[in-house]
Amino acid sequence: MVVTFYIASALALAAAAVGISRAHPIHGLLFLALALVAVGVVFLAVGAPLVAAFHVIVYAGAIVVLFLFAVMVAGLSAPAVAAERTRLSWRAFLGPALLAAALAWLLIAASRPASGAVEEPVPIVTVASALFGPYIAGVLLAGLLLFAGLIATHHLARRDDAATEEQR
């Protein structure tokens, strides 16, 4: 378990770091998907199989695909990728990396008081009955939020369609 965690977390961090620094969107998104899958493994390692499953399905499955779809719709030109590549020098990452390191260090420092171990996996039944027991209102609200997101996306997209239909 511990070994799995360390391997998976190291992989996740490395894949995420590479993923956000790719010039080509598709490359970046593939590494991102890898990182997300690795995080799914981390979830398994800390004893949260339901979370791991959903995580992989939603993030690696739905969200990354959504990103890829956006890349497809936007259409990427080679000159744009080339321009992106010239912008991405190590200098561009220097400042953000320093800030992010400070942030991470502070977060670690802030979480120092936490102690304890991760041993027993929480049963799926417990999670499920919590979701559909005391947290049912939250679940419904989450559903509403997704529905609102759907409507918003639909509206944002529709105008474009109308414009193109007029053009036809």
Partner: peptide
């Protein structure tokens, strides 16, 4: 974003 991050850094630093 940078300002936001700096601000949250300051808050975190204060709490740490």
């Amino acid at each position: 974003l940078a300002v936001l991050l700096l601000g949250s850094l300051a808050v975190l630093a204060y709490s740490v």
